[in-house]
Each structure stands twice: as structure tokens, then as C-alpha cells.
């Protein structure tokens, strides 16, 4: 199998309707960006699943390191004052 005919991997994001975010749907192979977005249309919206598509080369995605998950995601825990449910005294007051 020769290297020269291998197409890169792309990640596909679908907006299912107006007002919603694009959500990761899966991936595919395509030779270039223009074909990737077309392949995404053919593969991931065969049943009216979307009104808009994003494709991005998989290798271009930067993600948080799973091994440093603790230092990344510990901080918000225990800070319940960031959530409306923390404020009990105002419960029952209308339009608040």
C-alpha cells in the first residue's frame, strides 16, 4: 500500500438546526477541505440531520491532556456559589 494515495482524517461537526451549536458527529477521510465538507454532507446528513457543517483536520485539534485531568478540572468543583441553586434565601421570590 503506497503512502501517496492516503487521504487525511477530518472531524465533522453538525449544526442540527438554527440556534444550536455544532456538535461532533464523527470523522471521515478526504483528500482536501472542499471534498471533506462535501463528504460530510453525504455521510452525516443523509436524513436531514443538519443545516450547517464544520470540518477540521483531526491533527489540527488541540485537546487537554487526559493525564493532567485533575489539575485541569478540579478547580470548579466545590465552588457551588457559581450555581443559582446555591442561593436558598431568595427561593419563592417571583421573577428572580
Amino acid at each position: 500500500m503506497s503512502e501517496k494515495n492516503i487521504w487525511p482524517l477530518w472531524e465533522v461537526f453538525v449544526r442540527s438546526s438554527r440556534g444550536l451549536s455544532h456538535v461532533h458527529a464523527g470523522s471521515l477521510h478526504a483528500p482536501d477541505a472542499e471534498m471533506a465538507v462535501r463528504n460530510a454532507r453525504d455521510l452525516y446528513t443523509r436524513r436531514n440531520e443538519g443545516v450547517s457543517l464544520w470540518v477540521v483536520k483531526s491533527e489540527d485539534i488541540i485537546s487537554s491532556d487526559p493525564d493532567s485531568k485533575d489539575q485541569f478540572f478540579e478547580s470548579p468543583k466545590g465552588k457551588d456559589y457559581r450555581h443559582a441553586t446555591y442561593y436558598k434565601a431568595s427561593e419563592g421570590v417571583k421573577h428572580l
Binding site: F13, V14, S16, S17, L20, S21, V23, H24, A25, Y44, R47, N48, E49
Partner: peptide
């Protein structure tokens, strides 16, 4: 709607 990126309609 948010939960599904694969909402299907005819």
C-alpha cells in the same frame, strides 16, 4: 435537540 447531533426528520 441539543442532545442529538443526529436528529432525523423526513
Amino acid at each position: 435537540a441539543l442532545a442529538s447531533a443526529t436528529r432525523v426528520t423526513p
